[in-house]
Simulated scan of single mutants.
Amino acid sequence: MVEPGLIVFTDRRQSERPLDEVIAGAVDGGARVVVLREHDLPPRRRLKLASTLRSLLDQAGGRLLLEEDGALRKCHGLEELVAAADDPADYVTLSPIFATRSKPGYGPPLGLAALGRMAMAAPVPVFALGGVDTPGRVRDCLDEGAAGVAVMGVVMRAEDPARLVKELLAA
């Protein structure tokens, strides 16, 4: 199993470039776990995209997860994190940690102190998600006990996804 420091979620609508090009850049920058969302795509088109992305990640020794495959659970509070003990999830995301442009409707940011408390209580590695868009914020999340960070919009919108991912991973 690939142990990520950074998980990249896809959202092609946030990018002006083809998604496979954005993900190729992220992988070049060091991303090794990518979660394919894109549920609105017709099944054949999503399957073709998954095949393309899986090939990119396989070449780098990475892993493509389908959002619905159960390896990752998305949590928004302590109750959901504790319940993750009953799931076969390898990782969980906790969000939103900071305010985010990508998913503004998920309530107020939890903040770093809550991340720290919840990461200690979680039965599986917790990845901070939501507004983690700078190296400083990555460091803050790791200092609070997060196993890593998960990003979406910041990579999808990046002019240079490879450079951005390198910077986030270096933190």
Score class of each variant (00 low, 15 high):
30 G>L: 09
8 V>F: 05
117 R>S: 14
87 D>T: 15
90 D>A: 10
121 A>I: 06
69 D>N: 02
168 L>T: 07
18 P>V: 00
78 L>A: 11
55 S>P: 05
52 T>P: 00
131 G>E: 07
105 G>K: 12
127 F>R: 03
81 L>G: 03
101 R>D: 11
1 M>N: 03
124 V>R: 15
106 Y>R: 02
10 T>A: 09
24 A>N: 01
36 L>H: 03
110 L>C: 07
128 A>T: 02
165 V>K: 02
33 V>S: 07
16 E>I: 00
151 V>I: 02
147 A>P: 00
89 A>P: 03
39 H>K: 15
68 E>S: 12
66 L>W: 03
72 L>Y: 10
146 A>H: 05
53 L>I: 09
33 V>F: 06
132 V>E: 08
66 L>M: 08
103 K>P: 03
131 G>Q: 09
137 R>F: 12
114 A>M: 04
14 Q>T: 01
68 E>A: 13
120 M>L: 07
124 V>S: 10
48 K>G: 01
23 I>V: 15
96 P>D: 15
47 L>F: 10
104 P>W: 15
30 G>Y: 10
167 E>H: 11
165 V>P: 12
21 E>I: 00
25 G>P: 04
61 G>W: 10
107 G>F: 08
164 L>Q: 05
165 V>Y: 02
112 L>N: 01
9 F>Q: 01
130 G>W: 15
150 A>Q: 04
7 I>P: 09
43 P>I: 14
56 L>M: 13
2 V>M: 02
3 E>N: 11
110 L>W: 04
120 M>E: 14
168 L>R: 14
14 Q>H: 09
50 A>N: 07
90 D>T: 00
158 A>M: 06
22 V>F: 10
169 L>E: 10
85 A>S: 14
139 R>T: 13
170 A>M: 07
113 A>W: 14
77 G>L: 05
7 I>G: 03
140 D>A: 15
36 L>W: 02
46 R>L: 09
5 G>N: 05
4 P>Q: 12
161 P>K: 03
14 Q>Y: 06
74 K>R: 08
41 L>C: 12
127 F>I: 03
35 V>L: 04
74 K>F: 13
159 E>G: 13
34 V>G: 04
20 D>F: 09
121 A>E: 14
127 F>W: 11
146 A>Q: 08
57 L>K: 08
111 G>H: 06
49 L>E: 11
111 G>I: 08
75 C>G: 00
148 G>H: 05
7 I>Q: 06
9 F>N: 00
77 G>C: 01
4 P>M: 13
154 V>M: 03
90 D>V: 00
153 G>S: 12
42 P>T: 01
129 L>P: 09
34 V>T: 04
84 A>T: 13
37 R>M: 01
120 M>P: 00
42 P>F: 01
116 G>C: 07
73 R>H: 06
22 V>S: 02
89 A>Y: 02
101 R>K: 14
8 V>A: 06
66 L>A: 02
92 V>S: 10
21 E>L: 05
94 L>N: 06
78 L>V: 00
130 G>T: 12
